[in-house]
């Protein structure tokens, strides 16, 4: 049971948080892992804060409960940092990966007193440069896999290419790889 990893993705409606948690789970499935991935059901709207969850385990599990205590929190949008309790419910020693342009030190101010490891990636910049649009969801997953290898990067790239056919898939793949290398 201890091998279950809960990932929460915080984003804003339209940024692809739900797609990200879904693709992360699909990547786990093609590796033969067991998953439970779902958005936080409620009134969703473009721009509104949303959360989405992936529960991943190499062994079968049966529980069907929403994720209240994630191991990993991925923040797709830095504007959430002030508004939403990002670290809420995070397990002690958990991981926070944030799309953040500034310095790592200034990011840490948001999580004072939280027992966690904090990582940052300039997701928005990478998205602009690689994709041309502000869709940093897959980039954040690339960064995540560098920090904790819950699935292999190849699996994620494979499902990404399946989901986004043609040039968009290629661009995303490139962006994911770049994020994998640039996370700090």
């Amino acid at each position: 049971m201890a091998s279950i990893v809960d990932v929460r993705i915080n984003g804003r409606g339209g940024q692809g948080a739900v797609t990200a948690s879904r693709l992360l789970a699909e990547a786990a499935i093609i590796e033969g892992q067991y998953v439970h991935a779902f958005p936080n059901f409620g009134p969703e709207r473009a721009g509104a804060p949303v959360t989405s969850f992936s529960r991943i385990s190499p062994e079968p599990f049966t529980e069907k409960i929403e994720v209240y205590n994630p191991d990993i929190v991925v923040v797709i949008d830095s504007s959430l940092l002030g508004d939403v309790q990002i670290a809420e419910g995070l397990k002690p020693g958990g991981i926070i990966i944030c799309n953040y342009e500034g310095k790592l030190e200034s990011l840490k101010h948001y999580f004072e007193g939280v027992d966690s490891k904090i990582y940052k990636i300039s997701g928005t910049r990478i998205a602009r440069e690689e994709l041309g649009i502000n869709k940093p969801n897959m980039i954040m997953l690339g960064a995540l896999l560098k920090v904790v290898q819950i699935v292999k990067l190849e699996s994620l790239i494979k499902v990404t290419k399946e989901r986004f056919k043609g040039v968009i898939g290629e661009k995303n793949t490139k962006a994911i790889r770049r994020a994998y290398n640039e996370v700090e």
Binding site: R12, G13, G14, R45, A46, G47, D83
Partner: peptide, 8 residues
């Protein structure tokens, strides 16, 4: 419910 920051 200050939903003002939802908007694009």
């Amino acid at each position: 419910y200050k939903t003002g920051n939802w908007s694009a």
